[in-house]
Design a protein around this nucleic acid. Structure first.
Lengths: 211, 211
DNA sequence: CTTCGTTGTTACCGATCGGTAACTTTATAT
DNA sequence: ATATAAAGTTACCGATCGGTAACAACGAAG
């Protein structure tokens, strides 16, 4: 029995020279830089050096491509997350600070456009969109992880701390679109804010540690 | 010159139940709920109970309407802001907390979709869009006001505190789209986070005064 | 060579998009 | 009554959208 053409478990001898992968990579780039609704399939295929028919041989619809892009984004994000916190295993506070530090460093890249998934949440308001579930699940997981780290760090109110940290991170991504000069952007103070929140929740109640 | 005119309907060139105002109001609602790019001028005009021609008699283009909606949104936002902080004049810390409190209360409304201007920043990536300047100016002003309040409150690092507060607020708006149940959303902990940040920056370095 | 799967090419579809022309209707002001 | 301005109506434009049909060219594997 033959396998489904659309799901390409087929292996190419030398990585991503396949049309599908070129389309996928181009789509993720264009969606991220210009927005999902601003990019048509013709833009994607011409950007990938192919044509529309080859697009629909690999993807059943644009919406499905968008959903797959979001899934890929989520996977890469958690990979990045795990790599960032790995060096500080056993030290939850250091892990949290590492996330903020790496996040700020990542935002330093030119033409950074915030969080692809948060941006998608703005553009894809219809619950029926196949990407909607990915967005929801990703943000829930991000919240869960931050609360978990806050608890592991010994926060007095782990849920509140985790949520506040999440707001700082999400706010950093959201403001990145408007404050293009990341050297002076508000997100430069996200790490300091996170440290202050950590201090407040981890220090003994009557002494304030500053750092 | 003035006869008995039935009090209202159509007289003032500015304001009233004119078609232009109905279109404007409908457009702001639809843009906010469904997104700017997701709403066409036909959706707006039919929602306003009129037709496309009347639209283009009042607005030169959809982009221009969008820009005017954003300008109106900005104006109303600062009006709201000033009203919220007015009762706490002379107490910058209370003013900041009032902003967070009122913001969370506002987000409690059903079908709230975050910040219209932040959402527009995601959808309108082209710098040439007439709404782009409004977005940029609004976020700059928001940052300036928060830093100003932080300074007035006596923060050790007013810019850092103002920025961190801004990230909390922007994060609250951004996450509002995904966490639809606002009773358990992360933004419920924004005020607590803001208070912790205020404590850290306003309290004497060796004592903690808030719980 | 002959399959067979992959890709390129061209042309096309219906729907929707933002935007306009021309005319009719309606209400008001004088 | 009549002039005038606002608004409704219908039809249309070119462009673009997501998506499809049919066929030709290509490369690898049997």
């Amino acid at each position: 029995m033959s396998h489904d053409k659309r799901t390409t478990d087929r292996q190419t001898p030398e990585g991503g020279t396949r049309v599908r992968d070129r389309i996928f990579k181009t789509a993720r780039e264009l969606f991220y830089r210009q927005g999902i609704r601003a990019v048509g399939v013709d833009d994607i295929t011409s950007g990938a050096g192919t044509n529309k028919m080859s697009f629909y041989r690999s993807f059943s619809s644009k919406d499905e491509l968008v959903a797959q892009c979001l899934r890929a984004q989520e996977g890469e994000y958690w990979t990045w997350w795990d790599e960032v916190i790995a060096p500080h295993a056993g030290n939850p506070r250091a892990q949290i600070e590492a996330i903020f530090d790496a996040s700020a460093r990542k935002a330093r890249d030119v033409e950074r456009c915030g969080c692809a998934i948060s941006n998608a949440a703005v553009e894809l308001r219809d619950d029926a969109h196949p990407g909607h579930a990915v967005i929801h699940e990703h943000k829930m997981e991000k919240r869960r992880r931050l609360r978990e780290l806050a608890a592991a760090a010994g926060a007095r109110d782990a849920d509140a701390l985790g949520d506040a940290l999440m707001l700082l991170l999400e706010g950093s991504a959201a403001t990145r679109l408007t404050f293009s000069d990341c050297e002076t952007a508000p997100l430069c103070n996200a790490l300091a804010g996170a440290r202050a929140l950590l201090d407040a929740q981890l220090a003994p109640p009557r002494a304030a540690r500053r750092g």
